[in-house]
Design a protein around this nucleic acid. Structure first.
Lengths: 143, 143
DNA sequence: GGGATTACTTGTACGATACAACTATATACT
DNA sequence: AGTATATAGTTGTATCGTACAAGTAATCCC
């Protein structure tokens, strides 16, 4: 790990971390039962309330066709439900079902526990700082 | 972002960051010319020198079949080369070609620049700290 | 020398994604 | 009102990254 330069190290470590995290998410060791994409979409619905596909696509910067398929998959599993916008017949609004809420809560809980384990031994200050820096990093990503 | 708990925030932000980074890597806005998987594999070869597939698979915790295909793809593009291990006829060793080295250097450079931009305005201390915490996070991931 | 092991390759499948073509609805302009 | 245009979403098709399982070739071990 001969990264002298801080930015070089960040690039290296973040690339590596992403690699590992993505792998983890799709391996048999994945956390919880929801696919990563499903978890993210449901989390978004939980945060934002009923949303149309376009909003979700915007939030994730994904193509709307991708969200359309993901939503259809979650709908068929009974995790989210669709209803039409009375004001605009083109629009489908989506919302978590009760079952979806339960599964999301369960999954969030499992993920959180997993992270707790991962961060065991970190001081509160370190965790706080890491969170803060990640927020900042995410902000930078959007520009 | 009403994450009171530091771990909760880290989970949230890291999930989000990974989402964005993966997207970025495969969008037309991706950094450099190499696919993410190609970049990682070539970076590994650059760091470790000639390696067999099994080593690479181990390093990334990926199935060897995945690496086999990736290696074949990079080989056909002339970015890496294959030679057999004189000591063991089953083994294929891989190494960067000159062209591969050039492309990797170019890509590393572009990625680094992109990260420099992303982290513009961060203090040296913040960058150093972020790097340090990422290293620690990566270490935790492996256990 | 023959069975077990190892290293890799190949067939097949799936998740996540994009782009392009399409359908249905809505809006805007004359 | 009527037509043209724009918008929301769906569906066809393609690609990347990945896994698992079956196959091949080389090696190892008794």
């Amino acid at each position: 790990m001969s990264k002298e330069n801080a930015v070089e190290r960040i690039e290296y470590e973040l690339t590596t971390l992403i690699r590992k995290a993505v792998f983890r998410d799709q391996s048999e060791r994945k956390i919880g039962i929801l696919e990563r994409a499903a978890y993210l979409m449901m989390r978004q619905l939980d945060d934002q309330g009923p949303s149309r596909l376009k909003e979700l696509a915007g939030a994730f910067q994904l193509d709307i066709s991708t969200l359309s398929r993901q939503a259809a998959a979650l709908e068929s599993k009974g995790l989210i439900q669709r209803f039409s916008d009375p004001k605009d017949g083109r629009v489908s609004l989506f919302d978590l079902t009760e079952s979806g809420k339960e599964k999301l809560a369960l999954d969030s809980h499992m993920r959180l526990e997993w992270y707790e384990g991962l961060l065991e031994g970190w001081s509160e200050e370190e965790k706080r700082m890491f969170g803060k820096l990640l927020v900042r990093m995410n902000g930078a990503f959007d520009e």
